[in-house]
């Protein structure tokens, strides 16, 4: 039996049709399938995002990137909405700015954004006043938010604004989950799930304001399916998920990003050849990441790549003869 046609080379992709649209009065032409965000970026218009990442399927939940499309009843998420011919898009009029400001303010009033890169500037730019919702409610005790069930809730206390404040979860030596900082962008769930790792150790549980990232029955990570690839940390936009090393160093004030250098090398383990970006502070590796645009990793690593580099810098024990070789 002979196959009539045998595909040898990679099948040619049909060249994509171009779509013409207008963003903030500027005509843009982009290949079909490009998002509004992508189209805006080609002409240097930057729309802020929080839940968007190049390597993940857009979930369009944070609503920071909303823009106005003429003819649309409501604003549309620029990170996921594909550009259409003739679209007239406005990325920064009063209506857009209002929603963006409110979204940022609502987040800032309920979530600890202190380690979200660029957030302070954004809150300033949009003149957000998170305090106007009242003083933040006292932090919940550990585990309380994880046990919330849906249905009727206790009426709000008029003296406070509800928040996500709660103690960080430190249940293993590799990473810390500080859900007081979680904006529920779903990125970690996507990275752990079908977009990359397919381990599904975490998912969104609960509903509404009680929705949270959780393992099954909120068990600890060591009791969960977690394989400690840290791909969730890599995509977390707020520092809610953080390597323990960084968490500890930030805790004792020794984390100094401005003093860190980085170099790209190749992971020393298996033969896949993942690029590791090693972040070094005072000649010590403090963190390993991988570039998002790397075709092999898409920013992902496994437990060995992400955390298994400590062997190169174990300090020789005092009095040891093995200068420079470290311990076992």
């Amino acid at each position: 039996m002979t196959t009539p046609f045998v595909q040898i080379r990679r099948p040619d992709r049909e060249p994509k049709k171009m779509v013409e649209l207008q963003v903030d009065g500027i005509a843009v032409s982009v290949p079909e399938g490009t998002t509004i965000l992508g189209a805006a970026r080609t002409i240097g218009i930057d729309i802020p995002t929080l839940c968007y990442l190049e390597t993940l399927r857009p979930v369009n939940v944070c609503r920071v990137c909303m823009v106005e499309v003429e003819g649309s009843r409501v604003l549309v998420p620029s990170c996921s909405r594909a550009a259409e011919p003739g679209m007239i898009v406005r990325t920064g009029n009063d209506r857009v700015k209002h929603t963006r400001k409110m979204v940022l303010e609502l987040l800032a009033s309920s979530v600890d954004l202190s380690t979200t890169p660029g957030m302070a500037a954004l809150l300033d730019e949009y003149e957000c006043d998170p305090e106007r919702y009242g003083p933040p409610a006292p932090p919940a005790a550990a585990g309380v938010r994880d046990a919330a069930v849906c249905g009727h809730h206790t009426p709000p206390n008029p003296d406070f604004a509800a928040t996500l404040a709660q103690p960080p979860i430190v249940d293993n030596d590799l990473y810390v989950r500080d859900y007081a900082k979680c904006v529920l962008c779903y990125k970690c769930v996507e990275a752990c799930g079908v977009d990359h790792q397919n381990t599904f150790a975490i998912a969104v549980a609960g509903r509404g304001f009680d929705a949270r990232i959780s393992t099954e029955l909120a068990v600890t990570l060591p009791d969960s399916a977690c394989v400690y690839c840290g791909n969730c940390i890599a995509v977390c936009p707020t520092g809610a998920l953080m390597a323990k090393r960084e968490f500890d160093m930030r805790g004792d004030g020794s984390w100094h990003e401005e003093k860190q250098t980085s170099a790209d090398t190749i992971c020393p383990y298996c033969g896949v050849g993942c690029t590791l970006t090693l972040h070094v502070q005072d000649n010590e590796i403090v963190k390993a990441t991988s570039p998002l645009d790397n075709g092999i990793t898409m920013g992902n690593l496994c437990i060995k790549g992400r955390f298994g580099w400590r062997f190169v810098q174990r300090k020789p024990e005092a009095g040891s003869q093995e200068a420079g070789t470290g311990a076992l």
């Binding site: 033969g271 050849g273 092999i296 200068a323 070789t325």
Partner: peptide, 22 residues
Amino acid sequence: TVTNSERRVQRCRKASEPPDGA
């Protein structure tokens, strides 16, 4: 340089100084 399973040659780069003596 190292070569991975798909015959891709990639560069290793120096990120930190070796311990004294190495």
